Computed example of a mutant assay.
Amino acid sequence: MRGFGFGTGRRRRSGGEVVSVPNPVGFALNGSTNGALKTMVARVRAGTARGRIVWKGDSTTVGQGCGTGAPYYLAGARANRVPAVLAGLLSASGTPALDNAMVGDNGMNQAGKFPFVSYDTRFAIGAPAGSFAVFQSLPGGSYYSPGTGVFSFTPTASVNIFEVVIYNLSANILTFLIDGIAPQSIVIDKFTGSPSATTVGNTVVAAGGTGFSRAIITASTTGVHTLSCTSSASSGAGIRSILGFASGVRAIDMLVHTSLGASAAQQADISSEGWTNNGALAFDAPDLTIVNCGLNDMAGGVSTAAYAGSLQTIINTAKLSGDVLLVFPHRCIAPLNNNVANYLVTAAVLAASNTCAFMSLDQYFGGVVDSRLVDGAHGSAAFYGEVGDVLKRCISAMVA
């Protein structure tokens, strides 16, 4: 797909000479044609519509290790996590991409009550603070119940649209302001379950029920804006995610459903209410899903059959809307490497049987614990930077 800024994934020019650039060690295309991914890249490059990549995984995708502050190294880590790195590399190659969303707190509250606002400085919580309800089976590891205090979210890029996904849990009224004044409009444009939330002025009214409601909140101008929210109740309908973007700019949006400590089974969790990870994946309907699970499964002694079953659930749902890049994790210290050889074979065989692209970071890094892992499991900013580059090369091969 030379015309879309990716090249073929195999060649580049260096001083006028065409030289071979092989795919990363550990990558297999597996006969995948990746039509949804190619179409997404084409429309983003043409400026006709946005694209969407959803990430499924654990703390290594959240970015634990690439921030500051022992023992978690999470302070400021969001800006260095792999999705942010990949977004920057795609943009530099001519395909605009943004890691500009918040999905839950990615399990921060679970990690010794680590303050989410230190991980993601775009987010602020005023007194009296609301709370994150932490369930590993939820996208992002949680949902946020604003309480009667004020919380706010300020994307780093210029925006005029905020896309807010709300859990239809129980009756609540969420009041939204942009820069302290009522938005130009709020519209519920998509919902699953019943009943849908409704809008009255600058409020979203949730009656309680099942599934998600997505509110499109529009500012009167495009710029750096702050979305704030208060709630009529200390608990009730909560916020799953917020995505900010400029309606006049076409880009690929990253939605990071991952959570600290998550297993493949938790990332694949199914619920009839649609609140959990599998329901959220179907609701978000990505063009590409990047799946990197297994470390916590190995540590927990999960059988390879159960691991494969969880990955299959994710793949089945992801393929309803798009393509899949299945990633096997990099090598870590025990117990995160228990039965690693059989796990690797299981993931590789599963990817091939589903005709989806596969990347083994374990093979790429030589099957050893890289010296840039700050605690034997989580990478430094430099390590995650290399992982982002590897995944960019995988995507280049997938669209070639």
Rank of each mutant, 00 (worst) to 15 (best):
R2Y: 14
R2W: 13
R2K: 11
G3I: 15
S14E: 15
G15D: 15
S20N: 10
P24K: 00
F27K: 05
S32M: 07
S32W: 03
T33M: 05
T33S: 10
G35D: 00
M40S: 07
R43A: 05
R45N: 13
D58H: 13
D58L: 09
T60L: 12
G63H: 07
Q64K: 10
Y73T: 11
G76S: 09
R78H: 11
A79D: 15
R81T: 09
V85W: 10
A87P: 00
A87F: 10
T95A: 07
D99A: 15
V103P: 01
M108V: 05
Q110D: 12
A111F: 01
G112E: 06
G112L: 08
F123L: 07
I125L: 14
G130T: 06
G130N: 00
F132N: 00
F135D: 08
S137W: 07
G149K: 03
V150I: 09
T156N: 11
A157D: 10
I173H: 02
F176H: 04
L177D: 03
D179N: 14
A182I: 02
A182N: 11
S185G: 10
K190E: 06
F191T: 02
P195Y: 00
S196Y: 02
T203A: 01
V204G: 05
F212I: 04
V224Y: 08
L227G: 01
A233T: 10
A237T: 03
G238D: 04
I242R: 02
A246C: 06
R250K: 11
R250F: 09
A251C: 11
M254I: 07
S263F: 06
A264C: 12
A268K: 01
D269S: 10
D269E: 14
T276R: 04
G279D: 04
C293F: 10
C293Y: 06
D297Q: 13
G300S: 15
G300F: 13
T313E: 13
I314M: 01
I315S: 00
S321M: 00
D323H: 03
V324N: 02
R331D: 11
N337H: 11
N338H: 08
Y343P: 07
V349N: 15
A351S: 14
F358G: 03
G367F: 08
S371C: 09
S371W: 00
L373W: 12
L373K: 12
D375H: 13
G376M: 14
A381T: 13
A381N: 13
G385F: 09
E386G: 00
V390L: 08
A397P: 01
